[in-house]
Nucleic acid binder design. Structure first.
Lengths: 258, 258
DNA sequence: TTATGAAAGTGTAAATAAAACACTAAGACC
DNA sequence: GGTCTTAGTGTTTTATTTACACTTTCATAA
């Protein structure tokens, strides 16, 4: 556990034997100050002969893992390939392994077209990730990558819709017990942005004054002597999340009592 | 999701192809009114020729899964084999898949002695389970099965100690947000038993009066007109967990706010 | 320069929950 | 009848939650 290599030192295995039974899927969440988004990849397939469009839908970002690769590292690698960023917030939330994961003909066609056997059972370990930055590459393995508002998604390829739902559940649980939503915001953020994020993720409306009273009690949220700029209204004060203060006082947070 | 077969109808696959890359490990918790226990299996190996004891330690209960078996069902099957009981509380908590899971020579020797290749990578999906009843069979695949207090465990076979720690973490998180500890108690229990359970699992001391005030607010914990019997002191009132009331009022519990 | 729009920021009172704390009650057993 | 052991109870103080409305500050347009 100790002496983990720093991210700078990490070299993502790009070669090696692929493990054929386990993959990793990443549910990458983002926030554009309006919607909670998830990063999805276009899945398009045309008939080789007729040119007819056979498939046109969306998948999560996921990948097989290498035989000598840690699960966490495989997830980090996918994120790195997508964004060029390391040290992104990442959390394993559930493993999906139903023997019936591949049922729809679309999915079978896609797998066959990609040289894979739709009958072979593949387990996928689900990770969700919180991504603040938007400077991501918009290509992944030659496929188009897009931010899609979670609230507009009703179906996805394979069992990815189910995976997304589970990720959302896990995120909601996490969010009410640990301060991690800063990961979805720029390092300097306003309280209104933070409040909106909670509201969208939890699907509730919060009172502005009460929300701020609560924030005031969290000493790890520190107000800067710096205001928002270039907005057509009263500019808000900027805040940062102070990890040092948080870690220091963290212990007390553990005895939640029942 | 709907029309799941009832437990009574469930027939556990005892034959079929085994999946060689994924297994399921169950961390089965129990409570004897004194300790939080976990169900462990003796792992003993003698040298075929000299009779010397090569290995004598403990493992979690776990098993390979069948090729056409759901992960949840595999976990249920293990519990059924162990206890003869169905519908036991079960929760997937983490998946372990480090390429270095098998490192100690003991573990390699054991695997080889059991006709398995210590070099092949196996992923294991961790489930924890809460088991109230103690009428379990004390054998599993011909091996001895024992309840061991969690507080006395410092090492286990393979990476099972790590798995146990993760299960404990997950249980602690669960316990402070959802009323599930009833699963570790007889259906009729006393408030002192419940309090002790919280104290042991969370590693804290709770005030008796404040604890009871909190319980009083939980309308799904209903007091029976029935007292404890056969104790050498003032007998306590018995309580039950009323799942109907709980499910009915559950929605409000969701908006925890932040 | 003034007016307008749009979000930021602020306080108080009432209700509820949390925390701290010590004695009496009821049964079993001798 | 006495002793042992755990059950069961109430009050006060402090902290948290909830509900609720007006003023401030900036950019922009008139």
């Amino acid at each position: 556990m100790s002496h983990l290599p720093e991210a700078e030192d990490k070299v993502y295995t790009k070669t090696g034997t692929i493990n054929n039974s386990v993959s990793v899927d990443c549910v990458i969440f983002g926030f554009d100050f309006t919607n909670l988004n998830v990063l999805l990849v276009d899945r398009v397939l045309y008939d080789q002969e007729t040119g007819e469009e056979l498939i046109n839908d969306l998948t999560l970002t996921g990948n097989h893992i290498f035989e000598h690769e840690e699960l966490d590292d495989a997830a980090s690698r996918i994120l790195f390939e997508l964004t060029g960023l390391e040290n992104i917030y990442l959390e394993q939330f559930y493993t999906f392994g139903s023997p019936n994961r591949i049922q729809r003909t679309k999915d079978k066609i896609w797998l066959e077209a990609n040289g894979r056997n739709p009958k072979s059972r593949i387990f996928t370990v689900g990770y969700y990730s919180l991504l603040a930055s938007e400077n991501i590459t918009l290509q992944w393995k030659g496929r188009n990558v897009r931010w899609i508002p979670v609230s507009t998604i009703y179906e996805l390829a394979f069992d990815h819709f189910e995976i997304l739902q589970k990720a959302l559940q896990a995120l909601r649980k996490k969010v009410i017990t640990e301060p991690i939503l800063f990961e979805l915001l720029p390092s300097k953020f306003t309280l209104s942005q933070l409040q909106k994020l909670y509201e969208i993720i939890l699907g509730i409306k919060l009172d502005k004054r009460n929300f701020r009273k609560k924030i005031a009690r969290m000493d790890y949220l520190t107000k800067l002597e710096e205001k928002q700029q270039g907005v057509a209204h009263k500019p808000a004060w900027l805040y940062i999340f102070d990890r040092n203060i948080y870690e220091k006082n963290r212990k007390e947070l553990l005895d939640f009592a029942i």
